[in-house]
Design a protein around this nucleic acid. Structure first.
Lengths: 353, 353
DNA sequence: CTCTTCTGAGTAATCGTTTACTCATTATTA
DNA sequence: TAATAATGAGTAAACGATTACTCAGAAGAG
């Protein structure tokens, strides 16, 4: 118990660093450095940075000058720790190479940046295991929210705001505590089919990929509605993979087997291209003998030869709605609408001339 | 001075929270929660999580069980603060919609994730102001490194590792403290031109965009070398914007003005497509009358009608080299090679049949 | 002139980790 | 058996911000 006496004589007021690392750290520029140089306290510097609390104009000018001079960047990590949220949004996407998804990422990032949020991108390559790993990482990072682009399953994640965009998760229920932004796929299918019907097609087939997700189903449903209205038979061809090669193969088989459609509604531009490749090999001309529609209005649609009529969803609107809903929930705590269906329209081009 | 007395009687040992917020925070799960439930100290939990220091097998099992049960995710923010780096890499890209850039982002993210790094994406939309803002944000976030995809200018950023990929910045000097990963654009230009020459073309023109960057210059130089070798005249057409429409326009003007090339080397697939659109309108057939090469081997090249011969750079290799160099500098502090030039090869398709 | 209000600014606790010290217990060695 | 080494685990000081309190002095009110 005499240790107390020992401690008293000497250097206990000198900042004795237990850690060793501190020597190297001393020259790191932090809010304290700025405070000292500016002759104020850290509280004042913080108040100037965040523009809250009280400080005089001169003080502000001085602090700003010092920050500028020292090229000081406030440490977001410390701020995040204190405030327990990171101003980072995780965006989980199956495949960023897909132009449709890339567009969404681009627009979401742009909108988030406007609100001073950063975007962490997580490519799952369609793997559930990878997706789960990404989610764990994001939770560890205490992200302020997670956006699933075309997410397959719904996770109920506590403590973090979740938005699904482009696709309603399979196990999603309207009253789940999350936001869903999707586009009107049923109308998209309807518009495409209707366009072909209006051009005079009577023997229309739908080419879709082997997806059983909600979007595909709705596109097919819209297509069927249009044909039903005109009392036309609704035929479908299912392609195993979303590749041009597979589609070309299927369409050749279909026609060699005796069918002779005069219109093809495709659920993706890639499938439409595949169909045209197949038809070209059979010497069948587009649009003279077969009219075709794609979906997504990708860059391909506008550049391909012939240019492709395609259903366009406004990526900008989807992204905007996504970010608005997300930030409203994060900042405002508002929870008015959790489900948005955005309109689509048809861009007519050479394949339906 | 009698306040001291007052403080003594009563509840000074109860954790009196000055802050108020603390009531709501009490139920937040942190390392302390786990430590208490597992009957060990926070140090032990930390050691189990990070697999360093000493602990017994039983202790580890217990800690793991509690973490599992409570669905505990260690707070990366606190860790980052303590360790002064975030395991986040900022990737600055001019336009993620560009498939070439998207591919790089995808592969970089994939490689980084393997090493437990996260990727923050920053789209600059080619704006210098936005780029600067993004950099400031990244510095505030204390990112472990920054990757510039196709970055125009070199910033000397202290305290953060920088890699430029796909493009050597304009003001870059070999001895600058950064890494540059580029592909062999000179060879690319040479290979494309050589291919046309080998197919018998003698009147070859290069179609390039109004870019004065290093990559374009090198592609042009390679093209010129190939033609010089065969004592052929090297002509060029400069297109104002990298769009198919602009290219189509230019090629029509060029031919209407009396020129009649039998080969076109284009510095981008988009330009190649534009050229073909222009030629088609003039009734000139590809490849029978004019042979064409593109660059980047984008998805367009394989799908277009006709399919396009194109110079391919291995995106995977570039991304791998980028991440390897980056992490080597961050983790290892190694600085052996700062400049890598990766090989390219030609993918021959219908436009040069 | 005294009492109250306002203003500008400082002090110190807190966020959740990591890790340099430290210290009991057990092995191990002489 | 005694000295030494190895093992397992705890204590508490950082990391860099934010902000609830606090307070001195100026301004205003009575």
């Amino acid at each position: 118990m005499e240790a107390g006496l020992e401690g008293r004589n000497g250097e206990e007021s000198r900042p004795v660093m237990k850690d060793g690392r501190t020597i190297a750290m001393r020259d790191r520029i932090n809010i304290k450095t700025i405070a000292e140089k500016a002759g104020v306290s850290v509280a004042t510097v913080s108040r100037v940075i965040n523009q809250n609390g009280r400080f005089s104009a001169e003080t502000e000018a001085m602090v700003r000058r010092v920050m500028e001079e020292m090229d000081y960047h406030p440490n977001t990590i410390a701020k995040s720790l204190r405030e327990n949220h990171s101003r980072i949004i995780g965006v989980i996407v199956p495949d960023i190479m897909n132009a449709h998804f890339a567009g969404l990422v681009l627009e979401i990032e742009k909108n988030l940046f406007r609100h001073a949020y950063s975007t962490v991108i997580c490519n799952t390559n369609e793997s559930d295991a990878l997706e789960r790993k990404h989610i764990d990482t994001l939770l560890s990072q205490r992200v302020s929210g997670i956006v699933f682009i075309s997410g397959k399953r719904h996770y109920s994640l506590d403590d973090v705001t979740v938005v699904y965009v482009d696709r309603r998760p399979d196990n999603y229920e309207i009253d789940d505590d999350c936001v869903v932004i999707e586009s009107d796929n049923e109308s998209g299918g309807y518009l495409a089919a209707r366009c072909l019907i209006d051009k005079g097609c009577r023997n229309i087939t739908m080419l879709y990929a082997n997806n059983t997700d909600h979007n595909q189903k709705m596109r097919i449903a819209g297509y069927e509605r249009a044909l039903r209205e005109q009392a036309l038979a609704a035929r479908t061809i299912c392609v195993d993979t979303i590749t041009a090669v597979a589609a070309a193969e299927k369409i050749r088989e279909y026609i060699r087997a005796g069918s002779r459609p005069d219109g093809l509604v495709c659920t993706t531009d890639i499938l439409a291209i595949g169909a045209m490749i197949g038809l070209r090999e059979l010497g069948i001309r587009v649009p003279q003998e077969v009219r075709i529609t794609g979906y997504d209005d990708s860059m391909l649609a506008a550049l391909y030869n012939p240019t492709i009529t395609s259903v366009r969803q406004s990526i900008e609107d989807m992204a905007q709605k996504t970010v608005d809903s997300l930030l409203e929930r994060i900042d405002g705590g508002g929870k008015e609408r959790a489900h948005h269906v955005l309109p689509v329209h048809l861009v007519e081009r050479e394949t339906t001339k």
